[in-house]
Amino acid sequence: MSNIALYHESEVNILGNLNAKRDSIVTDLYRAHNSWLLGWLRKKLGCSFDAADLMQDTFSKILQKDDLSGIKEPRAYLTTVAHGLMVNHVRRRDIERAYLDALENMPEVDVPSPESVNIMVETLAKIDEMLDGLPARVRSAFLWCQLEGLSHAEIASRLSVSVSSVRQYIAKALLHCLNMNS
């Protein structure tokens, strides 16, 4: 039942927020594809609640776009927007879970406020996103160096590679992050 209510609420919210200019485009998009998109998200996520939320977010995001007249392939467009949101959502959810687990295993740490949990999860998610696509070894070397302050020599012996390789790994990861940020 709650699922149906949520779905209904999304629809009201979205249709209530339209400004005149985009009215017909987004309404048509929503009417024609909302159940398809919900199905697509549900299949990818395996969870109806998250799927309904993300569908809402997808249409909210589209509402903020300046130019909607160029949409030629509505489903490709919707899935592109939804996919970006879905990746963020899953990353944040995983990191939040791992962070709270890690906190629990550190009895000496005071329970942080919800705001500071939020900020830390956001920071960690950003770092995680920056490191996407880097080989496992490069990622490990970089995290040991930046987060734990291990020396290049220590990292080299952990990974059984030369110190100059470690330096290369770190330079590569750093450059990757800087390029992602720019």
Partner: peptide, 12 residues
């Protein structure tokens, strides 16, 4: 990011 903690989370 507090050392130790961040690495545990990101190396999940």
């Amino acid at each position: 990011v507090p050392s130790g903690l961040g690495n545990t989370v990101l190396k999940r």
